[in-house]
Design a protein around this nucleic acid. Structure first.
Lengths: 233, 233
DNA sequence: CGCGGCTTTGATGTTCATCAAGTAAAGTGG
DNA sequence: CCACTTTACTTGATGAACATCAAAGCCGCG
């Protein structure tokens, strides 16, 4: 893992995640975690870990945006999903596998909260409510990935592009106007198309006045039409 | 859920799953589960539950083969995965969702072991080791589904068909000769192709002497070639 | 300044879905 | 048990969708 630990300014009792998740902690466990967590800042473009690396931390994203991806023998990347604040970067293998089965790199400057995996396991093993919460939360992430995969699979090129644009606009940024955090090629790697066809489809959506494009900046001008294209295509 | 409970002949202390999974149970919990589980037999073609049904049971497959699938508004099915003995039929939503997010129906006569979801939750909440085992096991299933989705997505038609044939032969039956438990259409629904192209591709593999076809019976004559097609295509 | 990566568009060809038509197999009702 | 209906399977022809190849402009960076 690149980067150096930050000064741990975060008091875990104030962590936004606590409400949803760490409420199952006793004060004792919370103090334990708080003293032993490490926050790592990462810059756009940096790699957090690679497929095959030893799993040392349980980690989740405090801020920023990252991509989870696999690289095939020919060197082509396949993006599994894009994760944002309070998403786990560790998928479900984290307690059963010893090595990462995918790579993670940074799309927008990020802060990662890391807890030693053995300590995490200890706490999970003596706190059933926490295990349960963990399972629910990690399950939600896995289910979202599975669902997205199925949605992508059944769409044609126009539907795929519309789908991912809506994901940026609704899920990730919550606004109709945003800067794409990824290259055209990365969009292609995410939805299983070629870069050229992603570009061509974006241009067509622009010509049809569904979106406006200015480099990385995208504005969804006609969300209803985009929804229609996503659902029909 | 169709079907009527079987006489519960299985003594849970003898359950094959116990070794891998239920060892985390105290004798007390095991007895609790054992008295309160129900085994349901299902016949080929029956539906175990449908998308949208209330989740009442935590359930796993003792024997047989089932498909998990979603049906879109147009009535077209998309197969998520095929599950075999000792796979969970409940995916990770089972503790966090109230309703099923997919349907399950039977490909080969099956016996399903069902445990009331509330009882399961109670036990998980007082037995952290069990929660942990559950998370590991359910995580493995989810990860397999995600991985398969990515593998399918990156292949062309020949690669997709080769991939799923190898799955039947290696993962499900462990033999080079087997009866397909699914129709050509279901294969298509699983790997995202049209029925016609599945058939065409099978015929081509037959002409190339990679497989032999006799109705539902498939023999993989040249496994190395099939692997090559799966990895290249 | 020049190199490499990203973006864009066009031309071309392959792959794949769709349409059509027919045979085989399996289920249904009299 | 047979006629009938439906579903599954198969092949061919066609066209649309999509990948590939090629070329050029753009931008950031050493």
């Amino acid at each position: 893992m690149e980067g150096h630990p930050m000064d741990s300014v975060c008091d875990c009792s104030q962590c936004e995640l606590r409400k949803a998740f760490f409420d199952s902690f006793s004060d004792e466990d919370l103090g334990d975690i708080c003293r032993n967590k490490t926050e790592f800042p990462f810059l756009r473009g940096e790699t957090i870990f690679r497929e095959g690396d030893l799993i040392r931390y349980f980690s989740y994203l405090k801020s920023g945006l990252v991509k989870l991806f696999k690289t095939d023998p020919a060197g082509k990347d396949q993006i599994i999903t894009i994760a944002g604040p309070y998403d786990f970067v560790s998928l479900l293998g984290v307690f059963s596998d010893t090595h990462q089965s995918y790579s993670v790199s940074v799309l927008e400057d990020a802060v990662l909260c890391c807890i030693d995996i053995e300590r995490m396991r200890e706490i999970a093993l003596r706190n059933a409510r926490f295990s349960m919460n963990l399972m629910e939360r990690m399950g939600a992430v896995s289910n979202k990935i599975i669902r997205e995969g199925l949605e992508i699979r059944k769409r044609n090129t126009h539907g795929k592009v519309a789908y991912i644009l809506l994901k940026f606009c609704k899920d990730i940024y919550g606004e109709c106007i945003f800067d794409l955090p990824v290259s055209r090629r990365e969009i292609a790697e995410n939805i299983g198309m070629t870069t050229e066809n992603v570009i061509r489809t974006l241009s067509e959506l622009r010509k049809e006045k569904v979106i406006r494009i200015n480099g990385k900046e995208i504005e969804v001008v006609d969300p209803a039409a985009l929804e229609r294209i996503s659902n029909y295509g």
